[in-house]
């Protein structure tokens, strides 16, 4: 599991985020964020609601400008269109009335940015079928995508992002709205993809626990600041206390991690109950 990875060098990194800060509506949402992701690595982006996870993804995708710092993707500066990044956004609403099958969504991942009508139907269909097989979604390839369950739609979106053969896959809270079973399946699927195809997977989540078995490294974002490293390096009382700017304890219970904050709780963190572990006042399950 979380084998310590030697400090990655800038040259080989698939993603190098170097000191970026983002201001939105007069507020510094991200402050001096820096971390690296190596090819084929599975990295979690952990933070509570409003911590800045989506904003960070938007910077990496070139959809949001940062006021300082730089981002290198595959060793090159950001461009408006970066074919080596695949992206699964946080919110995609599929209207059940839309005449659109799962396979159409995946096909658009291949060439949805191109003008004109695709001519190589046969090759396209083969590529889509192979991709649907890879994410175990062939069963519902011809179903109306708006009628699929949340977990099934998530697989379709992952296939959509993967079919263009990216080297870095960004997934914004793909586990939200999934039950424990579907959660485990999606995490296992992503871990397999990262390993077999050497695609770096960068996945945001508000809870660290579902990712613990597969995560190589994590980037923890709180109060606009980030800490990165292996789970053992980052999920520590000293590191998180410094990040939150107040005393925080880290508890390990039955292989799960709980972050316990002072009476008022860490800023911007919501209190919640996760499976079997009741989170009392001031206890945050992360």
């Amino acid at each position: 599991m979380n084998v310590p990875v030697p400090d990655p060098s800038a040259d080989d990194a698939i993603l190098n985020v170097d000191g970026i800060s983002v201001w939105l509506a007069g507020r510094e949402v991200l402050h001096d964020v820096r971390f690296r992701i190596m090819p084929g690595e599975f990295t979690g982006l952990i933070g509570s609601n409003g911590a800045g996870k989506t904003t960070l993804f938007r910077v990496i995708l070139g959809l949001q400008t940062s006021s300082t710092g730089s981002v290198l993707v595959g060793g090159r500066p950001l461009t408006h269109r970066n074919p080596i990044i695949g992206y699964v956004p946080q919110k995609v609403f599929f209207d059940p009335d839309m005449p659109l099958r799962a396979r159409d969504v995946v096909g658009l991942g291949l060439d949805g940015h191109r003008l004109g009508i695709p001519l190589d139907w046969g090759r396209r269909r083969q590529a889509v079928d192979a991709m649907l097989d890879a994410v175990d979604a062939r069963r519902f390839a011809d179903a109306r995508v708006g009628n699929l369950s949340g977990g099934e739609q998530q697989r379709v979106l992952i296939a959509h992002a993967l079919i263009s053969r990216p080297r870095l896959l960004l997934l914004d809270e793909p586990l939200a709205n999934l039950d424990i079973g579907a959660e485990g399946e999606v995490v296992a699927l992503l871990a397999r993809i990262a390993r077999e195809q050497r695609i770096a997977v960068f996945i945001s989540a508000h809870d660290v626990n579902p990712l613990l078995p597969v995560m190589d490294r994590l980037v923890y974002v709180a109060a606009g600041k980030t800490a990165s490293g292996t789970t053992a390096e980052v999920i520590r009382a000293e590191v998180l206390s410094a990040l939150y700017g107040q005393h925080v304890d880290v508890l390990r219970v039955h292989g799960r991690i709980l972050v316990v904050a002072g009476a008022e709780g860490p800023p911007g963190v919501t209190f919640e109950e996760t499976d079997g572990v009741a989170a009392g006042p001031g206890v945050v399950s992360l």
């Binding site: 599929f94 659109l100 658009l108 949805g112 940015h113 191109r114 003008l115 959509h160 992002a161």
Partner: peptide, 17 residues
């Protein structure tokens, strides 16, 4: 194709140029 893609996921379309 861009019409279809922007109809379902505008941010993905933007990210792809």
């Amino acid at each position: 194709r861009p019409l279809m893609l922007t109809s379902i996921a505008p941010e993905v379309a933007e990210a792809r140029g």
